[in-house]
Design a binder for these strands. Structure first.
Lengths: 356, 356
DNA sequence: GCATAGTGTGCATACGATTGCACGAACGAA
DNA sequence: TTCGTTCGTGCAATCGTATGCACACTATGC
């Protein structure tokens, strides 16, 4: 320990602190003294929910607080209030731009509500999810937002949350049970497919993503829906489950393009896999979009900036984030679960073109 | 309010809680009761720094704690301890993969030290930086890690930190004053340049990044150093300041490639700008690497997966993150500032080739 | 004029953990 | 035996805020 106390814990340490000269932060009591009132009065003056806070003397007290730079100590407040005004957010990884965008919006939405978002990443590992979830709970978050929901019942951690009655909401993906804020993946898949059909494509492959992700399933369902509507037969061999990574897209595309009857267009579950497909196409000497049309999903910033700008489906991350935060509030208030769905938009660019 | 109390604040509420059935978390006192000891004893049994925690009865107490699922309340602990075991991290944006990678490593390094990392983003806006910095301070973080240091004295917020004696450290970039953990940018720039020179290039352009970023300056300095060492003249017209974005890279490259004497290779301050250069090259009908060699920086995951895999300089983010956390600890302990530098590695791929 | 409601304020307590001090016991050394 | 240590443990104070209750006072309605 660097600096040692002069006379133990209960010494009469005044304004000047022991070492370092870093002066103590002002407390409610300091403000109260300055204002000549009781600390409780100051507390109420600063508490917007309290009617007194709309009075003239409350205004004066706030002035004093501001003046001496008082800000309430969140630890003390949380302790007394038994709530931290904090929500834990679990994402697979922040290096996935989609998750980073979503998280930034969630953090912003939380801040609007006076909440603080705490992130934890799982790297797609259910064990890590449990651990970081536990960590967040130890930090006494009031609620949690998960972007890792699965349809295959592997979401053990969500079960734990439900059991322990921790308020939570899902974002981007749903498990079909809990409250969730998601994009309309079926619509997105439909729009993208319809776009390719309009361009004359009928042999369309799908890099479909993992079957445990509702987003992937929804997009594929939208694809089938659009194909059926247009009366185009689907070759099931061209609809391939995959991961969400570039590697996975490259791998699937390598197989697809090696066929004797390759597709003329590929619909990808996200932009990442689309980039992988681009790499595979290039390796095979195929040009995009002349030899192969390509549509991504999420409209990550890179989509527009790739050498061949990627046609993609824009997802309203901000709306989803705000929805998730609203759902979490509702869960805290004990309201029943609900699913919020937000419509995506197709952003046509250069990577998909008319079949010649 | 959903559920109301039965008899006010001081009622004798026992195990079963008022509403919702969400049972109260166990406290130190609960563990103490079960173990038949004083709460302070339990506290010490759980405190690894305390010698008693290595005794048999401490072990027994920990067993009981585990059994009833006790975890200490961080609010109460922080309040008493006057420290939150939390460090605030300020990054421009998480949607920049570099920052996301760095942050993930910082968060991991913090966790290893029993600290919790809180992120805030600034969007490169100094005003936003002040605001989110303030927000973190209001949350009573013990220290801060900044990745937004500038050399041009615009880092007003850092000044505030220094004034208020808040422990902090810089990561990735330095302002030349505070404690910092950075990559050896000069070396990285040198390696990349040397690689191009070895491939026969002499007309090398540089997308140099913003002059307020020490990383950008260092990389450019390394370039000049390598050129000088090899006895190759530098055409200053080819060394262009830029941003860090794809757009910026594209813009600069568009200018460079329109020259009558275009460069045969481009060295980029990061992978983002390199991608922008790719787009510009493509628009001009130039192939990479046949017509233009390209080197990026940071080795973000996408570099290896681009249609033409990007040669890049790998930065040891983990080391930098751990260094930054170590520096922050030292700052907390009142030790003097220090700069830690970590060596990068060149990762050759397909985007740079021998000049024919 | 009196009951009722509302407003402004103070008092005291509780939230849950940490830690300085004190004290008893055990133990080794002289 | 006696003194000095070390170890194990308890007591009590403290961190800073929120809030139930009590009380004084004002305003309103009848």
């Amino acid at each position: 320990m660097a600096g040692h106390r002069v006379k133990g814990d209960s010494n009469g340490m005044t304004a000047r602190s022991a070492d370092g000269g870093r002066k103590k932060r002002p407390t409610l009591a300091d403000v109260a003294r300055r204002a000549g009132v009781n600390p409780s009065t100051v507390s109420r003056a600063l508490d917007g929910r309290h009617p007194f806070s709309r009075s003239a003397s409350a205004e004066r007290i706030r002035g004093i607080a501001q003046e001496i730079g008082y800000t309430p100590d969140p630890s003390a407040a949380s302790l007394r209030r038994q709530s931290t005004r904090t929500v834990g957010v679990i994402v697979p990884r922040l290096t996935d731009t989609v998750m980073a965008m979503l998280y930034e919006e969630i953090a912003a939405a939380c801040q609007e509500q006076g909440l603080l978002a705490l992130v934890a990443t799982t790297g797609d590992d259910p064990a890590a999810e449990r651990d970081s979830g536990r960590l967040l709970l130890e930090r006494r978050v009031d609620a949690m937002i998960l972007t890792t929901a699965r349809l295959d019942g592997q979401g053990e951690f969500i079960g734990t949350l439900a059991e322990q009655q921790v308020p939570y909401a899902l974002a981007m993906r749903t498990d079909g049970r809990g409250p969730a804020a998601v994009g309309d993946d079926r619509l997105g898949g439909h729009l993208a497919t319809r776009h390719l059909i309009d361009l004359g494509h009928t042999r369309i492959a799908v890099v479909a993503g993992p079957s445990h992700a509702s987003s992937a399933l929804g997009r594929t369902a939208g694809f089938r829906e659009a194909m059926a509507e247009a009366g185009v037969d689907v070759d099931d061999d061209l609809v391939r489950p995959s991961g969400f990574s570039m590697e996975s897209g490259e791998e699937i595309a390598t197989q697809l393009l090696a066929r004797t009857d390759p597709p003329t267009a590929v619909l990808c579950v996200n932009d990442n896999t689309a980039i992988g497909v681009m790499a595979a196409a290039r390796r095979r000497g195929l040009r995009i979009p002349e030899d192969l049309s390509l549509v991504g999903y999420n409209d990550t910033p890179i989509a527009a900036r790739l050498p061949v700008a990627l046609t993609s489906v824009r997802v309203p991350f901000r709306d989803i984030a705000q929805g998730a935060v609203a759902l979490v509030q509702q869960a805290i208030d004990g309201k029943p679960p609900q699913t919020l769905t937000y419509a995506p938009t197709l952003i046509p660019r250069s990577s998909a073109t008319r079949l010649t």
